[in-house]
Design a protein around this nucleic acid. Structure first.
Lengths: 98, 98
DNA sequence: ATGATGTTACGCTTTTTTACGAAATGATCA
DNA sequence: TGATCATTTCGTAAAAAAGCGTAACATCAT
């Protein structure tokens, strides 16, 4: 489990996505909503990363399986946001188990 | 830098090595010295992991470049041990930067 | 119904990682 | 000085990861 999480983060593209999601307002174009707590839609992440839809979706699925991001569906869009709780837990777990 | 460290740990074999090095006395056969603080020679790690010498050496080099292990050369042997200081720093850095 | 937004699954190519054996290197000991 | 043992480097092959485009599917909006 911890290995899966380390692999999920051990990738340039996915780490960048995690970084960008720290500050949606400054890293992405305006969206239908103004609430950074809801997250960023896939299209914005895809364009910023310069990837095809399928590749972007695959990266996000890896981050999601590892627990680092959460999704909310509103209307047609799926918004991704950081799972700060699990991120903190992961850092703590590393400190203990590593 | 942090990405290099995440990649170094995101591998089954290398994580096992880190784990084994926590307790040299119980995880490896007796050596020329009795001091677990000096570490474990490559041959022991190689046999325990079931790898060829060159492959084991490559894995250890990756851990060393990431800073997670330190080496001491005594006589013909190179002993590997955990770098507890950097491991703790890494966990802290993750908590802050992730 | 039609169109827009993802997600997932294919098949495929490119790149990276992992692995090996053989050869080269380094250090020690006779 | 050689001989020997431990380790690293090199070349290469196999496996895994990353990437693309396309197509099929689901959901929601118009």
């Amino acid at each position: 489990m911890i290995l899966e999480q380390l692999k999920a983060l051990g990738n340039d593209t996915r780490m960048q996505m995690m970084e960008w999601l720290k500050d949606p307002l400054n890293n992405f174009p305006p969206q239908d909503h103004d609430d950074p707590a809801i997250g960023v839609c896939v299209t914005h992440l895809q364009h910023k990363a310069g990837l095809s839809p399928s590749t972007a979706s695959a990266h996000l699925a890896i981050l999601q399986r590892a627990g680092f991001v959460l999704t909310t569906r509103i209307g047609k869009w799926t918004y991704y946001r950081r799972n700060e709780q699990l991120i903190a837990d992961f850092a703590t777990k590393l400190r203990i188990e590593l």
